[in-house]
């Protein structure tokens, strides 16, 4: 039952990727920007959760909510201060600004608290449940539970609420949406808020699961979550979920068969294969350039 065990580990990791990937894919869907700073919002989420639990002695669920709220605010601030002016800029300018914001967040955190890692406090007794011979930790179950709840919530927001409808409209055609009376600026901010909140949640559960956080922790998961978003089809919400899970499972398998040092390469190999073979991803649509 070694394989079932690895599958569970892979799904746990994949859930974290999926939560981060959702933010990437929603933002890309709506303003066609690869928000490089998204991985750093994830990092900030992990630190906010850490301080909430370790220093202010708050329980896990309230800490998760605080982290999500603060990350949502941070996401909106980033969007308003840095990205809003770039709506009509070239793609290169937008991408470089995003890289700049990412570096700024990372090194500002290092500037104030140093680069040393922090050990996440334990929030729940680490019990294991045995299912079909695989021992599944309570943390894995917690990750899955949180992810599933958040995804259901997201589906509800996107498909059943007014702001969700506005988000879908703006990502389809911002100009037409504006003419229909939708406040495009607010809708974009809402997208950043939701995406960043999900990244914040991912940060907290990452901290609890892997117990070690540091200011540059967002870089690699951020890039990989982007890979997950591309894999699923950028702009597609179910795509991001599936892409994240697939990536998590693949990475875990690569580690399990003894190539753990190559684990990070796996994500990039997947990325390049998907970009070359089917750039629109699993759930994406093909777009044609107008001449």
């Amino acid at each position: 039952m070694e394989w079932l065990q690895q599958l569970v580990n892979g799904i746990s990791l994949g859930s974290i990727y999926a939560l981060i990937a959702l933010g990437y894919t929603m933002v890309y869907g709506i303003i066609k920007l690869i928000n490089f700073a998204h991985g750093d919002v994830f990092m900030l989420g992990a630190f906010i959760g850490f301080y909430a639990i370790a220093r202010w002695d708050i329980g896990f669920i309230p800490a998760l909510i605080i982290s999500m709220l603060l990350c949502a605010i941070i996401g909106v601030i980033i969007e308003r201060v840095a990205y809003k002016r770039l709506r009509n800029a070239t793609r290169i300018a937008a991408l470089i600004t995003a890289i700049g914001v990412s570096l700024l967040i990372e090194y500002t955190v290092i500037f104030f608290r140093g680069a040393s890692p922090e050990a996440y406090p334990e929030v729940m007794a680490n019990k294991s449940i045995s299912i079909f011979g695989a021992s599944i930790s309570s943390q894995s179950i917690m990750i899955l539970a949180v992810t599933i709840v958040l995804m259901i919530l997201l589906q509800f927001i996107v498909h059943k609420t007014k702001i969700g409808k506005a988000m879908r409209a703006v990502s389809h055609d911002a100009d037409a949406a504006r003419l229909m009376g939708i406040n495009v600026d607010n809708t974009i901010s809402a997208t950043f808020a939701i995406g960043s909140a999900l990244a914040g949640a991912a940060g907290v559960i990452f901290g609890i699961y892997y117990t070690r956080i540091d200011p540059l922790m967002g870089v690699l998961p951020g890039l990989k979550a982007f890979v997950a978003a591309v894999l699923g089809g950028i702009g597609s919400i179910p795509g991001a979920m599936v892409g994240g899970l697939v990536l998590g499972v693949v990475e875990t398998i690569v580690s399990a068969i003894g190539y753990s040092l190559w684990r990070d390469a796996a994500a990039f190999v997947i990325l390049i294969l998907i970009l070359i073979l089917k750039p629109s991803g699993i759930f994406g649509k093909n777009a044609r350039e107008k001449v």
Binding site: A93, T97, G100, S102, L103, L104, Y107
Partner: peptide, 12 residues
């Protein structure tokens, strides 16, 4: 790095 990134953002 902070100076780099701020300059980069402002220039962009």
């Amino acid at each position: 790095m902070i100076i780099y990134s701020v300059v980069l953002i402002i220039v962009m």
